[in-house]
Design a protein around this nucleic acid. Sequence first.
DNA 1: GAGATCGCTGAATCCGCGA
DNA 2: CTCGCGGATTCAGCGATCT
Lengths: 371, 371
Amino acid sequence: MPKKQSGQTGAAVAALDYDVIHAGDCIEVMQSLPAESIDLIFADPPYNLQLKGELHRPDNSRVDAVDDAWDRFASFEAYDAFTRAWLTAARRLLKPDGAIWVIGSYHNVFRLGAALQDGGYWLLNDVIWRKSNPMPNFRGKRLTNAHETLIWAAKSEGSKYTFNYEAMKALNDGVQMRSDWTIPLCTGSERLKTATGEKAHPTQKPEALLHRVMVASTRPGDVVLDPFFGTGTTGAVAKRLRRRFIGIEREADYRAVAEARLAAIRPTDSEAVAVTTSKRAEPRVAFGVLVERGLLAAGETLVSMNGRHAARIRADGTLVASEVRGSIHQVGAALEGAPSCNGWTYWHFRRDGAIVPIDFLRQQIRAEMQE
Amino acid sequence: MPKKQSGQTGAAVAALDYDVIHAGDCIEVMQSLPAESIDLIFADPPYNLQLKGELHRPDNSRVDAVDDAWDRFASFEAYDAFTRAWLTAARRLLKPDGAIWVIGSYHNVFRLGAALQDGGYWLLNDVIWRKSNPMPNFRGKRLTNAHETLIWAAKSEGSKYTFNYEAMKALNDGVQMRSDWTIPLCTGSERLKTATGEKAHPTQKPEALLHRVMVASTRPGDVVLDPFFGTGTTGAVAKRLRRRFIGIEREADYRAVAEARLAAIRPTDSEAVAVTTSKRAEPRVAFGVLVERGLLAAGETLVSMNGRHAARIRADGTLVASEVRGSIHQVGAALEGAPSCNGWTYWHFRRDGAIVPIDFLRQQIRAEMQE
DNA sequence: GAGATCGCTGAATCCGCGA
DNA sequence: CTCGCGGATTCAGCGATCT
């Protein structure tokens, strides 16, 4: 049951340093921090992958796998002991209405989930990060491992955890946010590299994932702790969304990369942050408005995200494809054979040689509406 | 490690009754069946946890339900004991190369997964059943719980489990099947009803889900056991796909519904049940046979796929290139500086001005072998 | 310059038979 | 059991290079 925060705890909280990266073992550092001082914990612990030999792609290139010492454990027992120790230290830090997110793959997530339940946390959802561009299964021996699992849990059964229902609904184009999130891997310019061009961290998470986590379950000003800070994705998103963060990271190399990254982040305009997380949904924009305003022309062709489909815009803001017509969502869903489809992110248009999602135009409209 | 099946076990297997539904507690019934007689187990155990249903200890005594918050630990313990007991009985029944699927939600799946790992099973994939039409979260306090999780595991780490890679790939429109499957809930006419119009079983699974499970991981004629048979979805799909099934169900009402359901199922035409085979399953052809049969001549020159290398054929079916000699694979790998090389697709020969892969000739030989 | 092509890469428990 | 070796196996996205 949630307890009221004592005055003493409040004083200790005031002594907390925010927006810092602590060096050292996460369990020891957490034990040194004041109890009940944290609103949200995001934890991306070692997965204990247990990889054996090397793996090559069909073109004979070698897969650069995670073989770092920090991911090696002697046994499930050893991994469980580690897991339960850091989860215990973490729970002490959470405010009574605080919550935690942990992420893992099938190698470790069942042990994480059981440890959370055994440790007194109260599970709220398991969330599937559905990767739009996973690495294939090169030997054809199993299904393509195309997702990872996040577990969202409150500190206790009765906790009044934060959930920004309307913000999630708005993010999902007006319908309730589901427990499966389709988000691409962290690649391209977002992926941090060393001076020699290697990836700075083997398992850097996409900022879009953390963005959704924080928009869902924190408020501006909340304190977010990441005990496995790595190169600081949690801190970067927290700073941008005007949350405060505390990172803990053992490896000096990762901390250095994170410090540089964070220094370059500018917080989002505070009104934009407030809008995203308020109970008010973002102003709804009909697709037809884009046509009315001439941002897209009737007769123009949109292409699907994957490039496999195309459709023509009609003057009333509906689309026509081969034998299908309807809203941007309906046509996308029909062409993909999917139950639903967010047309705003599915459909793209060409502008100056680039392929741009139509959601880009919606954001433009919304910006105008706020003035 | 897989053990060889003993003669005694073989005899006992012959005594197994197929396509039957056993009445009774699944642990007791499983303990009465012969060891190493089952190819695949599909299990949809109680999701339980808050002990709304009944729970049994390994000795089958009924657990006196306690649902107070303070006793949550004891409840998890009881659920774990039950889980580990039936998983142990199930593992004994599996052939050395057998496998299991279990399904659960976030309430129980973490305990299932950990119990599988602790029990010696080897996890192959966790698979997300992504519901296209989930029930909304009416109170808006959490994310819409839009998926369930299946775990696919082999009996042991070294098992040569069945995976019909090509069939899955075909089912997914020519690209590898991923670990997330979008399938609607069981509704409409597929949903079994009682005489009074109520649903016959609270958690009836869609046949499409079982269809994919069986096409992925069984062959025609395989024996599929379902220890929580319910209204017989596993049996229905097994019968239709010409697999054999064994069901175990405690509740007489469910068994009655399942019996009627199964009686109406007609097996699919046996040719339609055959799945796409992979190249691995095709008869092996030595390269030398092509020379023996005069499809290629000793002394003839082969060129590499990329045109950068050439090699001469010797009478014994080996190749010679500059300073390299050996099999078609070895020479290809050496010339490319690659760890391995599939000589069948790497090497090409000239015929009527065209460049043809030598694999074309292997296919000719294989076609002759089938006659 | 625009479009096509090529190369690279991502948390991976990734082969199987015969000697 | 190990060892040797034949030979089967990849999707999406980004960025650089080529036409």
